[in-house]
Design a protein around this nucleic acid. Structure first.
Length: 127
DNA sequence: CCAATGACCAAAA
DNA sequence: GTTTTGGCCATTG
Protein backbone atom coordinates (compact mmCIF):
# COMPACT_ATOMS: atom_id res chain seq x y z
CA UNK A 1 0.00 0.00 0.00
CA UNK A 2 1.13 3.50 -0.72
CA UNK A 3 4.82 4.09 -1.01
CA UNK A 4 6.13 2.08 1.85
CA UNK A 5 5.92 3.89 5.11
CA UNK A 6 6.65 7.50 5.69
CA UNK A 7 8.67 7.81 8.84
CA UNK A 8 9.12 11.22 10.32
CA UNK A 9 10.98 13.33 7.85
CA UNK A 10 12.31 10.37 5.90
CA UNK A 11 10.65 8.17 3.34
CA UNK A 12 11.55 4.55 3.58
CA UNK A 13 11.36 2.81 0.27
CA UNK A 14 13.68 -0.05 0.92
CA UNK A 15 13.04 -3.69 1.57
CA UNK A 16 11.05 -3.17 4.69
CA UNK A 17 11.40 -6.82 5.56
CA UNK A 18 15.13 -6.69 5.94
CA UNK A 19 15.14 -3.36 7.70
CA UNK A 20 12.27 -4.20 9.98
CA UNK A 21 14.06 -7.35 10.99
CA UNK A 22 17.23 -5.41 11.62
CA UNK A 23 15.48 -2.82 13.72
CA UNK A 24 13.71 -5.55 15.63
CA UNK A 25 17.02 -7.10 16.55
CA UNK A 26 18.46 -3.77 17.54
CA UNK A 27 15.54 -3.24 19.86
CA UNK A 28 16.25 -6.63 21.35
CA UNK A 29 19.74 -5.75 22.46
CA UNK A 30 19.65 -5.26 26.22
CA UNK A 31 21.24 -2.29 27.93
CA UNK A 32 24.81 -2.84 28.96
CA UNK A 33 25.39 -5.13 26.01
CA UNK A 34 26.38 -4.50 22.42
CA UNK A 35 25.93 -6.30 19.14
CA UNK A 36 27.90 -6.29 15.91
CA UNK A 37 26.56 -5.47 12.47
CA UNK A 38 27.34 -8.94 11.30
CA UNK A 39 25.37 -10.53 14.11
CA UNK A 40 22.39 -8.29 13.51
CA UNK A 41 22.52 -9.13 9.84
CA UNK A 42 22.66 -12.78 10.67
CA UNK A 43 19.66 -12.57 12.98
CA UNK A 44 17.83 -10.57 10.36
CA UNK A 45 18.29 -13.38 7.89
CA UNK A 46 21.13 -11.92 5.82
CA UNK A 47 24.31 -13.37 7.28
CA UNK A 48 26.52 -11.37 4.93
CA UNK A 49 24.63 -8.12 4.74
CA UNK A 50 26.47 -6.44 7.58
CA UNK A 51 26.90 -3.30 5.51
CA UNK A 52 23.21 -2.97 5.02
CA UNK A 53 22.77 -3.06 8.77
CA UNK A 54 25.07 -0.11 9.01
CA UNK A 55 23.16 1.55 6.25
CA UNK A 56 19.97 0.95 8.16
CA UNK A 57 21.51 2.52 11.23
CA UNK A 58 22.43 5.61 9.31
CA UNK A 59 18.80 5.91 8.28
CA UNK A 60 17.50 5.57 11.82
CA UNK A 61 15.62 8.55 13.17
CA UNK A 62 15.44 9.58 16.79
CA UNK A 63 11.67 9.09 16.85
CA UNK A 64 12.06 5.37 16.29
CA UNK A 65 13.56 4.96 19.72
CA UNK A 66 16.18 2.50 18.54
CA UNK A 67 19.25 1.89 20.70
CA UNK A 68 21.48 2.07 17.68
CA UNK A 69 24.35 3.11 19.93
CA UNK A 70 24.55 -0.52 21.01
CA UNK A 71 25.56 -1.60 17.55
CA UNK A 72 29.28 -1.68 16.89
CA UNK A 73 31.55 -3.30 14.35
CA UNK A 74 33.16 -6.69 14.79
CA UNK A 75 36.31 -5.10 16.13
CA UNK A 76 34.47 -3.50 19.00
CA UNK A 77 35.25 -0.03 17.76
CA UNK A 78 32.68 2.64 17.11
CA UNK A 79 31.78 3.94 13.72
CA UNK A 80 32.76 7.57 12.99
CA UNK A 81 29.31 8.41 11.79
CA UNK A 82 26.96 7.74 14.65
CA UNK A 83 23.71 9.39 13.61
CA UNK A 84 22.93 10.96 16.96
CA UNK A 85 26.09 12.91 17.63
CA UNK A 86 29.06 10.85 16.49
CA UNK A 87 31.14 8.14 18.09
CA UNK A 88 31.86 10.38 21.03
CA UNK A 89 28.19 10.52 21.95
CA UNK A 90 27.81 6.83 21.27
CA UNK A 91 30.60 5.98 23.63
CA UNK A 92 29.11 8.18 26.34
CA UNK A 93 25.78 6.40 26.02
CA UNK A 94 27.39 3.00 26.22
CA UNK A 95 29.47 3.89 29.23
CA UNK A 96 26.33 5.21 30.90
CA UNK A 97 24.81 1.77 30.45
CA UNK A 98 27.79 0.08 31.99
CA UNK A 99 29.75 -0.91 28.90
CA UNK A 100 33.47 -0.98 29.53
CA UNK A 101 36.00 0.25 26.99
CA UNK A 102 39.52 -1.00 26.54
CA UNK A 103 42.58 1.18 26.45
CA UNK A 104 42.53 1.10 22.69
CA UNK A 105 39.14 2.74 22.77
CA UNK A 106 37.45 -0.48 21.73
CA UNK A 107 34.70 -2.28 23.59
CA UNK A 108 35.47 -5.52 25.36
CA UNK A 109 33.24 -7.67 23.21
CA UNK A 110 34.09 -10.72 25.27
CA UNK A 111 32.04 -9.23 28.08
CA UNK A 112 29.43 -7.22 26.25
CA UNK A 113 28.73 -9.11 23.07
CA UNK A 114 25.14 -10.17 22.61
CA UNK A 115 23.56 -12.60 22.12
CA UNK A 116 25.75 -15.13 23.96
CA UNK A 117 25.95 -17.48 21.01
CA UNK A 118 27.30 -20.68 22.42
CA UNK A 119 30.01 -19.05 24.49
CA UNK A 120 29.84 -20.84 27.84
CA UNK A 121 32.32 -18.50 29.46
CA UNK A 122 30.00 -15.72 30.49
CA UNK A 123 31.30 -15.99 34.03
CA UNK A 124 31.50 -12.46 35.23
CA UNK A 125 34.09 -13.14 37.90
CA UNK A 126 34.09 -9.52 39.09
CA UNK A 127 37.03 -9.89 41.41
C1' DC B 1 20.74 -2.22 -16.27
C1' DC B 2 25.28 -0.32 -14.85
C1' DA B 3 28.42 2.18 -11.66
C1' DA B 4 29.45 4.05 -7.43
C1' DT B 5 28.70 4.19 -2.42
C1' DG B 6 28.41 2.55 2.32
C1' DA B 7 27.99 3.14 10.71
C1' DC B 8 30.97 -4.00 7.38
C1' DC B 9 33.99 -8.42 7.64
C1' DA B 10 37.81 -11.39 7.10
C1' DA B 11 42.07 -12.65 5.37
C1' DA B 12 46.65 -11.42 3.73
C1' DA B 13 50.97 -8.57 3.45
C1' DG C 1 49.91 -2.94 15.58
C1' DT C 2 48.70 -0.98 10.35
C1' DT C 3 47.35 -1.04 5.36
C1' DT C 4 45.53 -3.40 1.29
C1' DT C 5 42.38 -6.49 -1.17
C1' DG C 6 38.37 -8.98 -2.07
C1' DG C 7 33.65 -10.02 -1.09
C1' DC C 8 29.16 -9.07 0.39
C1' DC C 9 24.42 -7.06 -0.67
C1' DA C 10 21.00 -3.20 -0.61
C1' DT C 11 20.64 1.84 -1.89
C1' DT C 12 21.16 5.59 -4.97
C1' DG C 13 22.05 8.23 -9.20
Amino acid sequence: MEERERVGAGLIEMDEVFFECVYDQVKNVPAGSVCTYGTIAELAGYPKAAREVGLAMSRVQRAWNLPCHRIVNAQGTLAPTYAFGGKDKQRALLEAEGVAFLEDGAIDLAHHRWPPTGEPEQLALPL
